[in-house]
Design a protein around this nucleic acid. Structure first.
Lengths: 216, 216
DNA sequence: CACTTTTTTAACATTATTTTAAGATTTCAA
DNA sequence: TTGAAATCTTAAAATAATGTTAAAAAAGTG
């Protein structure tokens, strides 16, 4: 799971980051929303944790920006306020949840898990293929398909967005962590991956990116 | 909005019913899940509000039944428990949300509204065709029509100005980013697009440009 | 270090899309 | 009715995106 955390109180921020990283998650922590906007690809996250009261740009405005690029990523607003108006504003913006300070980290974990692991962690790709989003493992009829690290990340982001196109900027950022790679690298990886598959469920959408078709 | 409410505590049940009915909604309230199962048609509701701890049949079991007939209706579980096992069980079942007792009715309202009035950015073009302005996808009766990049942009600008003529300067500027293209290019694209459609909703307005007629 | 595996690059092949050109058809007004 | 302008249609050329292959570079392993 990859988390974007934006919280101006560095003590709270670091605590949350440590807590989730200890459980094997990836946490990108920013204490300033402005800085975050400059550096991130919103689509790469499973969830946003955003403080509402921050200097420079408040959490609502910040989320409005993110939403343009990642309308499907759930957000939990962290707030020191408790009045219903703030809750309402949050929900109007499409918030998935909100949590009031001070809170127990365990409670935050519950709320995060509730949103992120909405569905089962195994996603059915085709009749025979399924992908385990926790263990990043691909199975063909109960038999594991051996994947390299990059292939795992590649499938992870595709499976997370199953039915939707994942563009190459998102792929670069997610699989290669923003590193500058040659234009061919993605294509070569797709080729290698396809070679390992008995059915080619990795579809290219010309001019946009790659996707896995959603089953019905 | 039509709500199914199943809650064994009659005081809470009636309060919720009154609250939502005051706002012009219809609420079918049952204090017993067994009774509810005998009388209702699950598919008639926009949302289910289900208490978890009920005598006779708990909320999870009750929802499992409903789900067979109405898998798309979102459910909010009402619970007095706060431990993770219950939350997990709820979400394994596909719960859209849960809310802990005691809660503010306004908060429940916000959570309900968020689920029921999810905003979409889909524009109806004809009886069978609709266009998603977020994802730039065209659908014919729930089936996506494959479009090339330029075709997507072309439809986007037409749909955004539905009912109005879009002149060729605007088209050039929007689809081709101002690039100098031969006078025939637009026509060829229109032709290709029309070939993909079962109904021709792209009308030419001689001397002006193209438009999509507004539905009523 | 020597070996294997994985990742990246480069060069070229293939395919899909976009654009152009040129003839056919439609439309509208004189 | 007729001619010019606009639009439609078709095919083919030009361009751009993706696919393929092999080999070099980098990373991991004992």
């Amino acid at each position: 799971m990859k988390i974007l955390l934006v919280e101006d109180d560095v003590f709270i921020g670091e605590s949350i980051k440590d807590y989730f990283e200890l459980q094997g998650n990836r946490v990108d922590y920013y204490s300033s929303p402005i800085k975050a906007l400059e550096e991130i690809y919103p689509n790469n996250y499973d969830i946003f944790l955003i403080d509402i009261n921050m200097p420079g740009m408040n959490g609502y405005e910040f989320y409005k920006e993110l939403k343009n690029y990642a309308s499907d990523v759930p957000v939990i607003f962290i707030t020191a306020y408790s009045d219903i108006d703030h809750v309402e504003q949050a929900f109007d913006l499409g918030a998935a949840d909100y949590i009031k300070k001070p809170f127990d980290l365990k409670e935050l974990e519950l709320r995060v898990k509730r949103l992120v692991f909405k569905k089962t962690n195994e996603v059915k790709i085709t009749e025979n293929y399924r992908f385990d989003l926790n263990k990043l493992k691909l199975f063909y009829k109960d038999e594991e398909v051996e994947l390299t690290q990059n292939e795992k990340y590649f499938l992870e982001i595709l499976v997370k967005n199953i039915g939707q196109v994942v563009d190459s900027e998102t792929l670069k950022d997610y699989v290669w962590d923003g590193k500058d790679i040659c234009s061919n690298t993605i294509r070569t990886h797709v080729k290698k991956l396809r070679n390992k598959l008995k059915e080619n469920f990795i579809k290219n959408v010309r001019g946009s990116g790659y996707k896995i078709e959603k089953q019905q």
